[in-house]
């Protein structure tokens, strides 16, 4: 999948209804996720709405886990990110990036829409998520 392509229609329809800041940030995250997937050679990413939220996961079996992102109108200053609660991804991210504004240590992380994109942390999160099963093999 090329990073220049548009998100699938259901994702585009969803985020078009969002304000500029979260939409722009989500698209920036997406570009970064696609870039990381290419670098990590995990193959094509499945990009869908999972539980109504944009999600990314390597299409190849036993390769990686799912990363989701969502903006909640009731929590407008943040873009939420979700990982599988059965993985240790959130714990690892908490150890590595204690400076991220939110991380419950289980599945929920968030980035501040008013701050520059924490590119290093997001790249690392995407790399660990998309190779999660491959590295555990």
């Amino acid at each position: 999948m090329d990073r220049c392509t548009q998100p699938p229609a259901p994702v585009t329809e969803l985020i078009d209804a969002w304000p500029d800041a979260p939409r722009t940030q989500l698209l920036a995250c997406r570009a970064l996720f696609l870039d990381v997937a290419k670098e990590a050679e995990v193959g094509r990413l499945d990009e869908t709405l999972k539980w109504g939220q944009p999600s990314w996961r390597p299409a190849r079996r036993n390769t990686g886990s799912t990363l989701r992102a969502y903006w909640f109108a009731k929590d407008p200053a943040f873009l939420s990110l979700y990982v599988d609660c059965k993985s240790n991804l959130a714990t690892r991210m908490r150890d590595l990036y204690p400076d991220l504004p939110r991380n419950d240590g289980r599945r929920h992380l968030a980035i501040d829409l008013g701050a520059p994109l924490p590119e290093q942390a997001l790249r690392h999160l995407a790399a660990m998520t998309f190779t999660y099963h491959r590295t555990k093999a």
Binding site: R92, L96, Y97, Q120, H124, A127, M128, T131, R134, T135, A137
Partner: peptide, 16 residues
């Protein structure tokens, strides 16, 4: 790197 005779799995578990 985690290595078995089958191959090498690599990842980056620390903050770059």
């Amino acid at each position: 790197v985690v290595i078995t005779p089958k191959g090498v799995q690599s990842h980056f578990p620390f903050r770059p």
